[in-house]
């Protein structure tokens, strides 16, 4: 074999190195490599389980044959499932609205505090969000405990009758929403605080010169500047709250009379406890279209505003 043939098959090392260098210099390649671990993680822990859940939801109870959309059709005809839909929406929407309101107020209060004391308060207010929810919910459960409730003990001290915190439909719904709000408000607070800090002071100064009142500053300066972060925080929280499992599971197990079940707890009861994994997968997938539509509209709004601002 001649030297000429060899040289035509193998590129000279200098040429190969420069090609590699060019590839490495490209921003998109670097970005792709840096995000690759995250992409792999999402593929393994989000995309694959989602597709597997879709596959499971189209099987019959014994997972021996495809029934396509029969599980979904079956669920739509069940009274209990519609109760679960109603409760999930009630739970998620009420909790997210309350969290957003409380977070908004807390962020403003913190923002108004002098810098010296602000850090201390910020740390303390973040505590509910930092404690693992399974543990904090157990503490709440103890406070609500039917027979030995600390709340009822305190109420008895002032002559008020005991409240069935987890035993009556209305109170049980109130309790699970309360715990979720307690747990989630600090997240809103910290996000809104970050947004508030990024609003340029000049805007407030300009509005003050124009004679704007406190409410007008909030309405025409703060709120428009925070709209994107509010939208994204609400979207993110709505997804997490819709998918909540631990709070309901620990506090009420879906009771009394299934009146606090949300999609995740009902899916667990149907799929794991009652041995019908395909139906459980179908229940959990019902969240997806609801949230997907909401996410599309929210993100479109965010994009539009970002373009307008830039």
């Amino acid at each position: 074999m001649s030297q000429a043939v060899i040289s035509s098959n193998v590129a000279p090392p200098s040429a190969r190195n420069s090609a590699m260098r060019r590839l490495a210099r490209r921003n998109s390649t670097t970005a792709f490599l840096l995000t690759l671990p995250l992409i792999l993680l999402i593929l393994c822990l989000v995309v694959y389980p989602f597709l597997y859940a879709v596959y499971l939801s189209m099987l019959n109870k014994r997972q021996t044959r495809f029934v396509w959309l029969d599980n979904f059709t079956f669920l739509l005809g069940r009274e209990t499932f519609w109760d679960v839909v109603f409760q999930s929406v009630l739970f998620a929407v009420t909790a997210v609205l309350l969290k957003a309101m409380i977070g908004f107020i807390l962020a403003h209060v913190l923002h108004a505090l002098p810098a010296k004391g602000q850090r201390k308060w910020r740390g303390m207010l973040l505590v509910p969000w930092v404690i693992p929810p399974a543990i904090s919910t157990l503490a709440w459960w103890w406070l609500f405990d039917p027979s030995y409730s600390a709340f009822n003990w305190a109420l008895a001290g002032i002559g008020v009758d005991p409240v069935p915190w987890l035993g009556a439909t209305g109170w049980a719904r109130f309790s699970v929403i309360l715990v979720n709000v307690w747990y989630g408000s600090p997240f809103f607070m910290i996000m809104y605080l970050a947004a508030l800090k990024s609003v340029p002071d000049q805007l407030y100064e300009a509005s003050a010169i124009d004679g704007a009142s406190g409410w007008q500053k909030l309405r025409y300066v703060t709120f428009p500047m925070m709209r994107n972060i509010i939208s994204i925080t609400v979207l993110f929280s709505l997804i997490v709250t819709f998918a909540n499992f631990d709070i309901v599971r620990i506090l009420t197990n879906g009771g009394p009379q299934d009146s606090t079940h949300v999609f995740a707890t009902y899916a667990f009861q149907v799929g794991i406890q009652s041995g019908d994994i395909p139906l459980g997968a179908s229940v959990s997938l019902f969240m997806f279209p609801l949230l997907a539509i909401f996410a599309i509209f929210t993100l479109r709004g965010v994009n539009k505003r970002t373009k307008e601002m830039s």
């Binding site: 039917p146 005991p162 069935p164 009420t252 009394p256």
Partner: peptide, 9 residues
Amino acid sequence: LPNDVFSWD
């Protein structure tokens, strides 16, 4: 029975 038995675990 105690009136909270509906939430007993």
